[in-house]
Design a protein around this nucleic acid. Structure first.
Lengths: 147, 147
DNA sequence: AGGAAAAAGTTGTCCGGACAAGGAATGCTC
DNA sequence: GAGCATTCCTTGTCCGGACAACTTTTTCCT
């Protein structure tokens, strides 16, 4: 089973473990994996349109719309019409979300710490480089479709 | 945004691209990412219980149950009670699924080819090693929970 | 043997991710 | 300025993934 597509299997398994770890680290903040990315983007870059969140997080419009609806229902985020473009919606983090910021940042710190484990700094850089190489390949593959 | 948790972000992005690529490669076989893994396991290891599929694929029981229900509805898989354990269900690929095998294997070949890109064999081994290191860390983190 | 614990599946619910389709507003082009 | 394409967002649908709760059966332990 692991014989077919070793790289792909490795990516697959690593991703699954990673996602499960995020989920567990976010558990006590009440967020699901993905939601914390939205909040982090809002905290860091301020109020912005949904399409900006979509492009910066790499999600897609329907997913983002529903995700924001849930965050809105939880009171963590507010929607406001754009004053300059009546199609657009401006999303911003509410003050009620602020207490979560420390938790989320701690969770991401832990995530990185656990992911990196006991690796030395150079080894870590090496791995980052490896992932960047894969990412480049996959991005290239994205456009060169057909089969 | 990319400043926080570079490793985690890299894993995240790579995984998303990878999954999207699988989805596209499987498109014309009519399968969704994940379903092909079930079929591959059945083709390779023969009829088996759902729990065996769960452990070998790393999924979980509810997901597997519903995934198999869909494959069953599509006629690609059949359920049969276990003769030795009345709790268990034996799952097997149907003859109707056989024509898909070549497509699925081709898709996985393409996936691996595109993921590896133009990397040299040693470089590829290096990256595999890097992913294995991350996987080991994440597996270790899985058990050492608490925070 | 008997009863508790564990295992195998199912169903309910919620979430993110993806595709299709469509409405509303904007921008562009002729 | 009129018409068409594009952009932004929403809704419907389907899927995989995860957690909880439950039923049925098996296993284990006393």
């Amino acid at each position: 089973m692991a014989a077919v597509g070793p790289l792909s299997h490795a990516v697959f398994r690593t991703a699954r473990l990673h996602k499960a770890l995020v989920a567990r680290l976010l558990r006590d903040s009440g967020l699901r994996p993905g939601q914390e990315l939205v909040l982090m983007a809002l905290w860091q870059d301020g109020p912005q349109r949904q399409v900006d969140l979509v492009t910066s997080l790499g999600s897609d419009a329907p997913t983002m719309a529903r995700s924001i609806t849930r965050l809105e229902r939880a009171g963590l985020v507010a929607r406001r019409p754009s004053p300059t473009d009546r199609r657009a919606v401006i999303v911003e983090a509410t003050p009620a979300a602020l207490p979560l910021r420390a938790k989320v940042e701690h969770a991401w710190g832990e995530l990185e710490r656990l992911t990196a484990g006991a690796l030395s700094a150079p080894r870590r850089a090496e791995i980052l480089d490896a992932l960047a190489a894969l990412e480049a390949n996959l991005t290239a593959a994205e456009t060169a479709v057909d089969s």
